[in-house]
């Protein structure tokens, strides 16, 4: 069970069970679909932008505990942040999830996902919401895949 805890931390299990900002948004500024063809997970991300700031963010969809928790924590971390900070966080998170190393102090609660880097097949799950975000930031309103 020990190596289980490393991946499925309590916080992850909690976000899986009670995902935050898990709702449809009517007055979104942008939205995008994400898809992981490997496991069929689908995700919809909604963002409301006020000036340079993310004033609201939410998601919908089905996915494994890792992808759901990653999306849930992402929305918590990004709400109220500037677009530029969101870009930065995306880079730092991607770096952490692929290398297992935390090189920046803005990673916040996302740290619970560090264990994922040891499981290459799960890295895609953790990145699904983030790639969808990146797609929105790049103003590229098509379906994202993690392949």
């Amino acid at each position: 069970m020990d190596n289980l805890r490393e991946l499925y931390q309590q916080v992850i299990l909690d976000h899986n069970k009670n995902p935050r900002n898990f709702r449809f948004m009517e007055d979104f500024t942008v939205k995008a679909d994400g898809h992981n063809p490997l496991c069929g997970d689908k995700l919809q991300l909604f963002i409301k932008i006020d000036g340079d700031y993310i004033s609201d963010i939410s998601f919908m969809g089905s996915g494994c505990a890792i992808s759901k928790a990653s999306a849930s924590i992402m929305t918590e971390e990004l709400k109220g942040k500037s677009i530029a900070d969101a870009e930065k966080l995306f880079k730092n998170f991607r770096n952490m999830i692929t290398s297992g190393e935390i090189t920046s102090d803005d990673i916040g609660k996302l740290e619970v996902l560090t264990g994922v880097h040891k499981y290459p097949s799960r890295v895609k799950c953790a990145l699904l919401a983030w790639h969808t975000l990146k797609n929105i930031l790049d103003q590229n309103d098509t379906t994202t895949t993690t392949e």
């Binding site: 496991c39 505990a65 890792i66 499981y119 799960r122």
Partner: peptide, 9 residues
């Protein structure tokens, strides 16, 4: 429980 999580456990 998602199939991915089941297989992983």
């Amino acid at each position: 429980i998602h199939p991915h999580d089941i297989a992983h456990l």
